[in-house]
């Protein structure tokens, strides 16, 4: 059974329909990346999981349980954590307070988890008393992800974690995503930097106009000529003609 499944999801904000039937599956232990042009509904698809828009069709299943149109605070309580693209930290709270807020719904002692997060993101430990709003872009993303991970989520949803970051930080964020994934959390990630994202992805989805366009493993999508031309800024290294060498 997949950890998370969007089944022919249809919906949008108010009367504006953005998703016209999107299906995405994330299995246990996977990193799944959603790419596509601007306005394709990538971020909207993630928000659909989190009960942030009105779904008029289809289903969202978490480990088989129907969570379609469940309000965000309840989805969070079920162990789905969502890191929005912007405004994803509490700027006037200290780093440690941000992490504590991430654990708000936990009733047990979360101190061990706090130390695990600091081990995962050592720069945060040094700055744990500092107001999170004063950190650099990359460190803010660490706080945002650390905060989400405090719940030991069943799945982590990331909305364009590298948006607006310099290439140096981008690489840092992708390696953080890999680290988080290696620690056992499945990840569903929307990304603009498609090439880098697909490199760390187990599987990828290409959305166009609120519909699934292509689906494949990260490698398949990277090597597909058509996708390369459309979304990856020309053929990538090692991209092959599909009709050619099939033994890759």
């Amino acid at each position: 059974m997949p950890t998370l499944e969007l089944r022919d999801v249809v919906g949008g904000y108010g009367d504006t329909q953005i998703l016209h039937g999107v299906s995405i599956t994330v299995d246990a232990g996977e990193i799944v990346v959603v790419i596509g042009p601007n306005g394709a509904g990538k971020s909207t698809a993630i928000k659909a999981v989190f009960g942030l828009l009105n779904l008029t069709g289809g289903q969202v299943l978490l480990d088989g349980e129907d969570i379609t149109n469940t309000p965000p605070e309840k989805v969070a309580r079920k162990g789905v954590c969502y890191v929005p693209q912007t405004a994803n930290i509490f700027p006037s709270l200290s780093v440690e307070e941000n992490l504590e807020m991430g654990a708000f719904v936990r009733e047990d002692d979360f101190t061990p988890r706090l130390h695990e997060i600091y081990d995962l993101f050592p720069p945060l430990k040094e700055r744990r008393r500092q107001a999170a709003g004063t950190l650099s872009g990359g460190q803010r993303q660490m706080v945002a992800m650390g905060k989400a991970l405090m719940l030991e989520p069943r799945i982590l949803l990331l909305d364009e974690p590298t948006a607006g970051l310099s290439p140096k930080f981008r690489g840092e964020i992708f390696s953080i995503v890999k680290t988080v994934h290696a620690a056992g959390t499945p990840i569903l990630m929307v990304e603009q930097n498609a090439k880098q994202a697909l490199k760390i992805a187990d599987r990828g989805y290409v959305l166009v106009d609120g519909r699934n366009k292509f689906t494949g493993t990260g490698r398949e999508l990277l090597e597909d000529r058509q996708i390369a031309a459309m979304f990856l800024g020309g053929p990538t290294n090692g991209a092959k003609d599909k009709a050619g060498d099939g033994a890759a």
């Binding site: 965000p72 605070e73 969070a76 509490f90 006037s92 709270l93 504590e100 991430g102 708000f104």
Partner: peptide, 18 residues
């Protein structure tokens, strides 16, 4: 702390499960 968090951003507070 949750009050200060919500004062910072009510939307994020909701997404965080506060």
């Amino acid at each position: 702390k949750a009050m200060r968090a919500m004062s910072d951003s009510p939307e994020l507070a909701r997404l965080t499960g506060i």
